[in-house]
């Protein structure tokens, strides 16, 4: 099966001197949930902007669903990838919830009847039906992010990128967005979460760690979550149960049952 997204030798320079991304190679399969982890300034967000063609790679090739990303194909590729950004206020285009969800559909030139149907379906999916006529100033950050998700779902893209989409929300908003990620992934949507919150990566299939613009390591989530050395090298924290496990190992405290228990705990979040 051909990969949903593939990057080959992708680099990006903001100007001559600073290289935000260096030689990134990565493939993401259809229906996969991949977390991209990294410290502030590691190049995570640059990567997401490259994927939707908001920035143009200085070197390398990006392929989405078999199509090479370039100036001619960028509009087709944007129909396949949606992105939820960090700041809820800076991506709410419409004057009301309904108008905002419609925005992307209007751009795709969806027929009005179909548009109305899709708005109805997806506003309900993110539990915002009661707010459909509300203005953004009447909504919380979490609600605005839900609208942003509905706006992208309505465009029926294959991939959704969550670019630090939860970092400005309160715990309730965060939990809610995470539950949508889970649900969507089950329905077959390819999910890419960009984050520095370890808890958001637990349920993903794979983790890619970026450090200073390069892929430091990537692999199945279970391996990476437990890789103390790599995580610490990239300004990240081990999940608490796993850190405890390492601590016990370091101090030669042998207790297989406890170890197993801690491992289970970390996987359950």
């Amino acid at each position: 099966m051909q990969p949903m997204i593939s990057l080959e030798g992708v680099s990006f320079k903001y100007n001559q001197s600073t290289e935000a991304l260096k030689d990134v190679n990565l493939t993401i399969k259809k229906g996969e949930w991949v977390s991209i982890l990294g410290h502030n300034g590691s190049g995570k967000s640059t990567l997401s902007k490259l994927l939707v063609g908001l920035l143009k790679a200085s070197e390398g090739t990006i392929k989405v669903d078999g199509i090479v990303l370039n100036e001619d194909t960028v509009y087709d590729i944007r129909k396949k990838i949606g992105i939820v950004f960090q700041n809820p206020d800076n991506q709410f285009v419409g004057v009301t919830v309904r108008d905002d969800i419609a925005f992307g559909l209007e751009n795709l030139q969806i027929e009005r009847q179909d548009m109305i149907k899709r708005i109805d379906t997806y506003v309900k999916k993110v539990d915002m039906f009661d707010f459909i006529n509300k203005e953004p100033s009447q909504l919380s950050g979490g609600q605005k992010q839900r609208v942003a998700i509905a706006g992208i779902l309505a465009m029926e893209t294959d991939v959704i990128i969550f670019d630090e989409a939860t970092s400005m929300l309160d715990p309730k908003g965060r939990r809610m967005i995470l539950s949508y990620m889970r649900e969507l992934n089950k329905e077959g949507v390819t999910i890419i979460t960009i984050t520095h919150d370890m808890k958001e990566t637990i349920e993903s299939d794979r983790i890619v760690i970026l450090k200073n613009g390069s892929v430091l390591k990537h692999g199945p989530s279970n391996d990476i979550l437990n890789d103390k050395e790599t995580l610490e090298k990239s300004n990240l924290e081990l999940l608490l149960p796993l850190e405890l496990m390492h601590h016990l190992e370091q101090h030669n405290i042998q207790n297989e049952r406890l170890k197993k228990h801690l491992w289970q705990l970390s996987l359950n979040g």
Partner: peptide, 11 residues
């Protein structure tokens, strides 16, 4: 950021 969000949504 808004321009990015709009463009990413195929505007």
């Amino acid at each position: 950021e808004l321009a990015n969000a709009m463009e990413a949504r195929s505007f």
